[in-house]
Nucleic acid binder design. Sequence first.
DNA 1: AACGTCACG
DNA 2: ACGTACGTGACGTTA
Length: 886
Amino acid sequence: MDKWVLIDGNSIIYRAFFAMPPLTNSAGLHTNAVYGFTTMLLKLLEEEKPTHMLVAFDAGKTTFRHEGYEDYKGGREKTPPELSEQFPVLKELLRSFGISQYELPGYEADDIIGTLSRLADEQGVETVVVSGDKDMLQLASDHVTIALTRKGVSEVERYDPAEIDAKYGLKPLQIIDLKGLMGDTSDNIPGIPGVGEKTALKLLHEFGSVEGVLENAAELKGKMKEKVETHRDSAVMSKKLATIYREVPLEKRTDELAYGGYDAQTLADNFRKLEFKSLLERLALPEAAGADAAAVAAAATYDVVSAGELPAAELTALLAASESVYIEAIGDNPHQARLIGLAVAAGDRIAVATYDDLMDGRTAAPLRDWLADEQAPKRGYDLHKAELALGWAGIPLCGIRFDALLAAYLLDPTESSQTLAALIQRFGLAAIQTDEAVYGKGARLQVPAGEALANHLAAKADAVRRLVPLLSAELGKGNMTKLNDELELPLAVVLAGMEKQGIQVNPGVLEELGAELERGIAQYMSDIYSQAGMEFNIHSPKQLGEVLFEKLGLPVIKKTKTGYSTDAEVLEKLEPYSEIVKLILHYRQLTKLQSTYVEGLLKEIRRDTGKVHTYYRQTIAATGRLSSQFPNLQNIPIRLEEGRRIRKAFVPSEAGWSILAADYSQIELRVLAHISGDARMKQAFIEDTDIHTKTAMDVFGVTAENVDANMRRQAKAVNFGIVYGISDFGLSNNLGISRKDAARFIEQYFAVFEGVRAYMDNIVAQARKDGYVTTLLERRRYLPEIKASNFNLRSFAERTAMNTPIQGTAADIIKLAMVKMDAELRTRKLRSRMLLQVHDELVFEVPADELELMKTLVPDVMERAIELDVPLRADVSYGDNWYEAK
DNA sequence: AACGTCACG
DNA sequence: ACGTACGTGACGTTA
């Protein structure tokens, strides 16, 4: 049985372009649309297993459609150059896939596909037409199904005549009439102005076709009648334009469409050129042209020596002359990572030490002495993780002077892959093998012995050595040397100290809470089942959706890409309809606490010490914030009392000590006042007034006494919106008001806070000009999408341009405070310990005799971390546990 | 592995 | 007309 797949090339490449984030290979060639197209192709090949395949393209600028209507597809934005350059790339890639392609001057891709699908119908060949264009639905028949892209490109929705009927109540050919009536702005097809999809469908259900509507125009009433009569010609012409021409004189025989599979070598070459690594892997194609270990080693210009085989004096000399070090620890959680060994590069020699070399024998002492020597500089990669992995093996690491991972993060904090192999590629250096290639992954993780391991570690140390000067130079160009040397690098050491210290968690408190939750959960579960009249998995959004929206018939508020949405926002709207909704909300609340915070946290407690040791990641957040993992201690509940009780489990690790917490008050808005220079906002903070109340006063034009709770709440939401990069849509959603009202609010706000408005305008303009935004300490974030022609991408980038300097500067400030606080604790020889950071809050454990001092020292250091045009304020509290420190 | 959901600032 | 508030991580389900 033959199976044809016909692809509307232009439509799909456009979709792919706008759906995918920007992507370039190291030569600067844009590849995102080709990438998206390719993922879709692979999925089609896999799912459809076509015997024949064709990608049709539009040829040239004008088609027969322009003869009757010059403005056809007029007013379209020009194809962005980032996309145009991908057409030839795609065509070449299709050739290496062995997929036929076709274009014919004067015709569009739809006409070619229309003609082929007619042939398919005549011959009874099962066919799938793939496009992003709804017009294609007119081609659906018993043999031809239409696959329309949904979000993105690889997701498609299939339509046969029955589904079109179900969705629109139309026969496939009536899609043309639909277009004739409603038009299509993207193709500049006018239709009947004022008639949208709803009206058009209503008319068609009644009269069947454009002609039917026109004939019966007399039956229509009022405005509608007028509209139809004045635009008769437009409707007829629009219908004609929307009609796919199915008699194209094809110069291609259908047997030329036969698909016989791709040639792995050619395809692999092409993928490599485009740097589609994940696709190489997906098709199990060789990653580098002949990139076996031998080829990689051949590029090496160094000698690998085993530390154990080196005479003691030589080893010491090599360490003293070290230019770079690579310390290997396998595992995501550095507190549990398996220490593998290290490699030190000096001149053209690289010494490799295994785990055993580090742990005992002749080499252990000199290696450990060197690692612990503050005066012996270490330039490495991810030394924060290394410090922890070594630390748990009882080996201190000191003298950290440069970290390639940190530097790479500062240079581009949004880059998803900061692995050494990726970095090397970005800087055009000779490739090294990926960790996955050497160690495998998942269940097949296997660390090779002997030479293979030594070579890999050596290659990494060599990679670091070559990267250090390049990264340093780039940091210099970006004015980030100081940020790197004086903030991020010292902070990495401070963080490692906090993480090693850990925080005591009382399992008894959690277990008791867990037992209580268990009872509540069981009760809610049985109540939910009886309300539903059946048992089902409440955790499954799919099953829950079926129960709520099909069995119980509640109204559908929102859909996700896979089905009904059942999130809290939706459920709150459904509360009036059924009692089950509230039960589900409570059930969700309790199970969240139970699984994530009671059970999850209990699992992370070290049996021997009773502590949890989070891992702060310094190179993840695009704004410069930290993130926290294993466990995440930056999202412990606080907003609701039930969850807040979790904090009672976080206690001091020594008897008689206290937990002390200090948090910045309104740090982001203070930062905004500073960087925008808005006089009114600065004044508010200088006078230390309640900023939300002050905002309400100014926006609503009332005195302090006349600001009611609701006004303050709205002002607060506006302030949040300002920090996030405001939009009327976002604010209206948040406040549950109309978009118009939200827009009015924003306008009123900007009328008062003129400096803030100027800042928002300027920062977006600056991002457009420079391609990036910066924080007060010169942290940088690139925003390539600020120039996107796609509205969504561009708007997102604009909001990010507004938000990142604010959130990022706040992150800079608390990081500064942490480094300074750590220094204070040391120089004053205090026993108090800094344990946690939660974005605007620092948590300490403090012995009784230091409590009085710390109560003033911590906020002092935080408030003086940096001098702004407005004062910073930090509030302190303390107690027997984190809950009490409020 | 991706998705939906929900915890935090 | 388009459809999102900014930044994260963990869990359970489903494919």
